[in-house]
Amino acid sequence: MAYNLKQVVAEKPSRFTSGHRMCAGCGAPPVARHILRALKPEDHAVVSCATGCMEVSTFIYPYTSWTDSFIHTAFENAAANIAGVEAAYVSLKRQGKLPQDHETKFIVFGGDGGTYDIGLQSLSGAMERGHDMVYVCYDNGAYMNTGIQRSSATPKFADTTTSPAGTKIPGKMQPRKDLTKVLAGHHLPYVGQTIAYMNFKDLYEKAEKAIYTKGPCFLNVLSPCPRGWGYPTDDLMLINKLAVETCYWPLYEIIDGKYVVNYKPKNKLPIEEFLKPQKRFKHMFKPGNEWMIEEFQKEVDTRWQELLDLEEMGNK
């Protein structure tokens, strides 16, 4: 059935309710809500979050924003946690102690700190063991919850509280880790990189594929943070759009090892467009710092070309 946004929203009630305490204009709640909408209404879900903004602000005792079972867990073991629940579920179902006629899906939401850095070992382990689960990383490019410290998802030259741009260093000194490709190295049945863009079609379809593909699946979603990135809260969708149109955040998926690039901008915008609205890159536009933009652009171009080559390789 073709995707119809209005129908999806009207017919599938939100499984991530209002009343959570994320910041105004946060990019993560629309992502989480739309991913959960990809579940069939009759299917149950068990959700867990790695420590991060989403965990601490959606599950403040005695309130929960999740209409599904939710497990509050730690930074380093979110994937291990849900993997254990999945294993128990499979076992109980086999023993006939659970009803056979309905499905339960297992989903983890982790920020980039809990996924790229601290939780990488448990994520890698769970993926390798082949549990039937989905790991969703909402990547906002730093430890936003604790005060914008750099993570390995922070792009090069970004100004954060632990990589402050000044006379000694030009912001973060290392380029970001490409986690989607790290996960692709686990040879998973489905890996996707997406963003909440336009009518959320890409996000929804990838979520649906990830949830209903048997085996471990991974989704990486860019989710802008107005506080940490330094842009006005109402610019959320503009930032998302620029991330895609500049190829900073390419939309692609890897199905059984085969790369598919879902969106190729007809007119690839220069990276300045994406950097300019964000305060964390402000120093890059000072006179004498042109080399930073050049280097950033080169990095983006290299990664984009690499991706196109990988797709072409798969078509041979």
């Binding site: 929203v9 939100s14 709640p29 629309p30 909440a196 959320l236």
Partner: peptide
Amino acid sequence: TQCGLCFPVCPEDAIPVNKEQ
């Protein structure tokens, strides 16, 4: 015009959508 661009982007789910979409 009921184009549907505003309601999915609301982080708070504060734009209700009825059964008639």
